[in-house]
Design a protein around this nucleic acid. Structure first.
Lengths: 114, 114
DNA sequence: TTAGTAACTAACATTTATGTAAGTATGCCA
DNA sequence: TGGCATACTTACATAAATGTTAGTTACTAA
């Protein structure tokens, strides 16, 4: 396998690089929601089953730091925080869409009903 | 998030189901190699950087059990084992291809040379 | 009888990802 | 002053993925 470095971490494939950015249990679910409108922290919390504050804020922070979403703090009372897509984030959506479709196809092959 | 069961494990999204089948560090690298010809165990071992016997044989077994590749034992001396794609495995290739292309695109955005 | 090769397999250790519970900051309102 | 709300953050614990080392089977050739 080829290999390359980024931030002192070694990657062996481009696919591995993708998952370092948008992999894990919650990042794609977050991006998928935020794709067409601004979402508040509390909305995401309610909408994504079982996500803890720890994982939600960790993943939101990483997605911001990596440029996939952006964060707006609206100084109302109590404070309101909104997350929206960046252009880089939008580019991830077709890939997630392909994975979703493939997931449904596998589920069908395996006799799983959703 | 919606949810469904398969083999007593709970899944929340179709994407999660995809990764339960072809996710992890080595499954896509294996499928990507096996896509156009038969590969021997020892060839895969040499070709995939850093993979241990434990992970290689575990992943090969799971990919077989899940119907993505098939295994042929050729009773020469010493024994020869070959892995080839199934039709179900072939269907995964375009998805891996999309992920690879996206990986290269992210790497380019991030100034990483391969 | 010993050694060598291919393809595993099992036991145990470590690393990484995720879960749980509690606490913090800000500001308002009663 | 106390309590409530949103959006986190921290410390600690558990679970899941992967790594390491050694061993196994089956057969042949020296």
């Amino acid at each position: 396998m080829p290999q390359f470095l980024s931030n002192n971490k070694k990657y062996y494939t481009p696919v591995e690089y993708v998952f370092s950015k948008i992999g894990g249990t919650y990042k794609m679910p977050i991006l998928w929601r935020v794709k067409d409108r601004a979402w508040r922290y509390s909305e995401l919390k309610k909408s994504i089953s079982n996500v803890s504050d720890r994982m939600l804020s960790k993943n939101l922070k990483e997605l911001c730091d990596d440029g996939f979403i952006s964060k707006t703090i609206i100084p109302e009372v109590p404070v309101k925080v909104e997350y929206t897509m960046t252009e880089r984030g939008q580019e991830a959506i077709p890939i997630i869409s392909v994975l979703r479709d493939y997931g449904f196809s596998l589920m069908k092959q395996d006799g799983i009903k959703d």
